[in-house]
Deep mutational scan, measured.
Amino acid sequence: CFKERTRSLLREWYLQDPYPNPSKKRELAQATGLTPTQVGNWFKNRRQRDR
């Protein structure tokens, strides 16, 4: 489970760009304390949910 602060940050970035490039994923990973893989998976799952 991600912290609420982490989730809200991911949601904000998702609204700006649902397909972040690898450098954006690394930047988000540093900002949230997650790994780039976790960030990528979150975006993938979120895109799937929005279908």
Rank of each mutant, 00 (worst) to 15 (best):
Y19A: 08
K25T: 15
K24A: 15
E12A: 10
N45C: 07
N21H: 11
R51W: 09
Q48M: 07
T35F: 03
R46E: 11
Q30M: 13
R46G: 00
W42C: 01
L15N: 13
K3E: 14
V39N: 00
E27S: 09
R51S: 15
T32W: 02
F43L: 00
P22H: 04
R49H: 08
Y19P: 02
L9N: 03
Y19T: 09
N41E: 13
R46V: 05
P18H: 13
T32E: 01
S8H: 12
G33Q: 05
T6Y: 09
A31E: 13
L28P: 03
G33I: 01
K44M: 06
K44Q: 14
R49Q: 14
L34M: 11
Y14I: 03
Y14N: 03
P20V: 06
P18E: 04
F43G: 00
G40R: 14
D17C: 03
L28C: 05
N21Q: 06
S23C: 11
F2N: 15
R51T: 06
S23W: 03
E4I: 04
P20N: 01
E4L: 05
R49M: 10
A31D: 06
Q38D: 00
P20E: 03
P22Y: 12
R26L: 15
P22Q: 10
Q38C: 07
F43T: 00
A29Y: 02
K25N: 08
G33K: 06
E4W: 04
R11Q: 10
R7L: 09
K24I: 13
L28D: 03
P36R: 09
L28S: 02
T32N: 05
A29D: 00
R47T: 02
L10I: 01
R26N: 15
V39I: 10
E12D: 12
D17P: 03
T35W: 02
R5H: 06
L10R: 01
L28F: 13
L15G: 07
R5L: 09
E27D: 10
A31W: 08
N45S: 09
T32A: 07
Y14W: 04
N45W: 04
F43W: 01
Q48H: 13
R47A: 07
A31I: 11
T35S: 13
C1Y: 15
P18W: 04
P20H: 00
S23H: 08
E4H: 10
Q30W: 12
K24V: 12
Q30P: 01
K44P: 00
S8F: 10
L9M: 10
P18D: 02
W13N: 15
R46F: 05
N41Q: 07
V39C: 00
Q30Y: 09
Y14F: 09
K3G: 11
T37M: 13
P22M: 09
R5T: 11
Y19G: 02
P22G: 13
R7I: 14
L28E: 00
R49E: 14
L10G: 00
Y19E: 05
L28R: 01
G33T: 03
A31T: 11
E4S: 12
V39S: 01
Q38N: 03
G40I: 10
W42R: 00
R51V: 07
R49Y: 13
E12Y: 12
P22I: 13
K44C: 02
L9F: 06
E12I: 05
P18G: 01
R46A: 09
D50S: 06
G40C: 12
R49N: 10
E27A: 06
R49F: 08
P18T: 05
D17M: 02
F43V: 00
Q16F: 12
F43N: 05
R11A: 12
Y19F: 12
Y14S: 04
R7S: 14
D50G: 05
T6Q: 13
E12Q: 08
L10H: 01
D17F: 02
K24Y: 04
T37D: 15
A29R: 00
A29E: 01
F43C: 03
W13H: 08
K24D: 02
Y19R: 11
T6P: 07
K25P: 02
N41R: 15
P36H: 09
T32F: 01
L34Q: 05
Q48C: 11
D50T: 05
Q48I: 08
Y19H: 08
P20Q: 02
E27I: 06
P20Y: 04
F2C: 09
Q30T: 14
L34C: 02
G33P: 03
G33L: 02
